[in-house]
Design a protein around this nucleic acid. Structure first.
Lengths: 233, 233
DNA sequence: GCAAAAGTGTTGTACGTACACCCATGT
DNA sequence: ACATGGGTGTACGTACAACACTTTTGC
């Protein structure tokens, strides 16, 4: 019985995370440069430790490098091309994460440089990381169309115009603001606050926050975005 | 640079496949008993070899055990709980596959027993394989609602009533046959043949086949099933 | 001629989309 | 007072859901 195991080759197992953030204008991804000498940007990543599960490891790495905790984290895909890492064969399980960008403070040491990049203006990336980002964007679009995960990218209090800008950025389109707000509000997932946003526009827009009791309950049907866009996977 | 690799623990990497088939009545999964002494049913699985990619390995294993080739195969999820395999820590990347059950002839040797089980009547399964099956069913439902993959489970020639029975089985519901056939035919994805099915019903139903030129072209929007069912990945 | 499954048509409703005007406020 | 972004309502068309009867043919 054990023989069957002993004859097998083991492999290194890495975790790489596509960390999405929204700065109010465009959808961004957090990239790092590992080490001083390395000139290639890459995703946040690390190695699986013997005592932890995959998602647990992805969360640990995310926390160590950014301080984020309790964020949206979802497994994306396992990448295992034999030559994806030219030095040592490594399987990478990619995760994608949605974070509130305003909460971000670089926890990276001098060994790591980190930067947010617009998804439409990415630098060349290490290994197959560009494939990972591309797939993550598809998945985010697919997912956000049917599950109310967009809120994970905004501050706790946000306005409808902010939310529209986020969806515009995710789908690279320009939703009609009247239809958009009707659609969003019809979910009854948002609570309108008294407070208005100051400073950005003259009139000011009402803040909303997510009704957490309802938010948790909903895993099912949500909206029906998915524009003319390509979906796939 | 290499040090960073050498310090890391390697892990065994397995591939397990949820193989769906449709016998005309219910949706089935192909399970095996490994070895003579083992009394637990499990998914078809095997080990990653050093020179192959993940999907390639899943396809190889599928071929070796069933003879199926050129079938629908999609990565489902990577399972990596530290204790999922109690003997040796193993990461498993699960794939799901859609096959034409009529083409199946057991290629398994005496070492393996194989059987098709209804997804609503599964035996206890090895390790976390029950979780894998459950997730695969969700994914199949999610996917089949928006991509025309259902045909992969039927013979090349099939009737509309057969197709309806398949969707009824996938979603465990009973679609309205009038709305169903209108919906399906409106995709223009099917070619009506002269030939009628004999023997099953008195009147006989027309055979259809997939218009492959169109089928290949479509990765995008397809139908919009997804009934009241739970989705969520 | 009857039973069993195949095939087809209409209508109401809900939802998405397109589109234009008034409102509040800081300057 | 005016410019800027915030907020709302209506009308149309499409697409889905509900529903019943006729057709074919093996027995």
């Amino acid at each position: 019985m054990l023989d069957q195991y002993k004859q097998q080759h083991p492999y290194l197992l890495a975790l790489d995370s596509i960390i999405f953030g929204f700065d109010g204008e465009s959808l961004k991804v957090l990239l790092v440069k590992r080490g001083v000498e390395d000139e290639t940007w890459s995703l946040m990543g690390g190695w699986l430790q013997p005592n932890e599960g995959l998602e647990q490891a992805a969360a640990r790495i995310l926390f160590d490098l950014t301080g984020f905790t309790n964020v949206y984290l979802e497994q994306l895909y396992a990448f295992g091309d034999p030559h994806r890492d030219p030095i040592v064969r490594t399987i990478s399980v990619a995760y994608f994460s949605l974070v509130k960008i305003a909460d971000y403070e670089s926890k990276t040491s001098d060994l790591y440089k980190a930067n947010w990049f617009s998804i439409y203006d990415l630098p060349p990336l290490l290994f197959d990381h560009a494939d990972m980002v591309e797939l993550a964007i598809k998945r985010l679009r697919y997912k956000a169309a049917q599950h109310p995960i967009g809120f994970e990218l905004l501050p706790d209090k946000f306005t409808i115009p902010q939310l529209k800008k986020l969806y515009d950025a995710i789908y690279n389109t320009d939703f009609d603001k009247r239809n958009f707000s009707r659609k969003i509000l019809s979910t009854n997932l948002l609570i309108k606050l008294e407070e208005k946003q100051k400073g950005f526009s003259k009139r000011g827009a009402y803040f909303y926050q997510v009704d957490n009791s309802k938010y948790r309950a909903i895993t099912n049907s949500f909206l029906n975005f998915i524009p003319n866009s390509e979906l796939g996977i």
